[in-house]
Simulated assay, not measured.
Amino acid sequence: MPVPSRILVPVDLSEEALGLVQYALQFAHAFRAPIDLIHVWEPPQYVAPDLLVASPGWDSQSIEKVAVDAAHKRLRALADQVRDAPSPLQHRVVVGEAASSILRTAEEGKHDLIVIGTHGRRGLPRLLMGSVAQKVVARAHCPVLTVHLYEHSK
């Protein structure tokens, strides 16, 4: 199996995401591979993404624009926490269904390793929310490394 030359790291912007990025950076450094950090914003199923958000003294904007702008800001802050990383790091926000957007990004970007976090949900929460990591593992064109995310306070 060839050595990874481009690594995709999808993050959910949870508190544990920094640990996932730092873990992925160890692989990137060992393989001298750049990392593409992405966050996928999935439009809510029961709210139109073009629904306008407004408040007094503020220009109305679509809920999608507000959410994507907030995600960009949080993702940039996450990337800034590891800006002295030994491997090149790029980041962006993608809009769409999480698993298929990650898979499409990996194929289009010619990534040959995906490092993705899993929260380890079981039972009803997993049934209701599904597992993005499981879908990515099942359908990816390249190897996928899953990393169990956990809160450091536990």
Results as ranks from 00 to 15, higher is better:
residue 118 T to C: 13
residue 129 M to S: 10
residue 122 R to Y: 10
residue 116 I to L: 14
residue 119 H to P: 02
residue 132 V to K: 01
residue 124 L to N: 11
residue 124 L to Q: 15
residue 123 G to I: 02
residue 136 V to R: 06
residue 136 V to K: 10
residue 133 A to D: 04
residue 109 G to D: 05
residue 124 L to E: 13
residue 120 G to R: 05
residue 137 V to D: 09
residue 138 A to L: 15
residue 133 A to I: 02
residue 118 T to M: 09
residue 138 A to Y: 15
residue 122 R to N: 11
residue 111 H to L: 03
residue 114 I to V: 05
residue 120 G to H: 14
residue 134 Q to L: 08
residue 138 A to M: 15
residue 133 A to W: 11
residue 116 I to P: 00
residue 137 V to T: 02
residue 113 L to Q: 04
residue 132 V to I: 01
residue 130 G to T: 00
residue 110 K to C: 01
residue 116 I to V: 12
residue 136 V to F: 13
residue 137 V to W: 13
residue 131 S to W: 03
residue 116 I to Y: 10
residue 115 V to Y: 09
residue 129 M to Y: 12
residue 127 L to W: 15
residue 136 V to S: 06
residue 129 M to T: 06
residue 133 A to P: 00
residue 122 R to Q: 13
residue 111 H to D: 03
residue 115 V to D: 01
residue 130 G to R: 05
residue 133 A to H: 06
residue 134 Q to G: 04
residue 130 G to A: 05
residue 111 H to E: 03
residue 110 K to G: 00
residue 129 M to L: 14
residue 118 T to N: 09
residue 136 V to H: 12
residue 117 G to W: 10
residue 121 R to E: 12
residue 122 R to I: 10
residue 137 V to S: 10
residue 113 L to M: 07
residue 126 R to E: 13
residue 136 V to C: 07
residue 134 Q to S: 13
residue 119 H to D: 04
residue 128 L to Q: 05
residue 109 G to L: 03
residue 112 D to H: 08
residue 116 I to S: 09
residue 118 T to R: 14
residue 125 P to S: 13
residue 132 V to N: 02
residue 110 K to Q: 11
residue 129 M to Q: 08
residue 115 V to I: 12
residue 137 V to P: 00
residue 136 V to Y: 15
residue 111 H to I: 00
residue 113 L to K: 07
residue 110 K to F: 07
residue 121 R to H: 14
residue 112 D to F: 14
residue 120 G to L: 10
residue 130 G to H: 09
residue 113 L to S: 07
residue 126 R to H: 10
residue 113 L to N: 01
residue 112 D to G: 04
residue 128 L to M: 11
residue 135 K to T: 00
residue 130 G to Q: 12
residue 129 M to N: 06
residue 114 I to G: 03
residue 114 I to E: 03
residue 113 L to W: 08
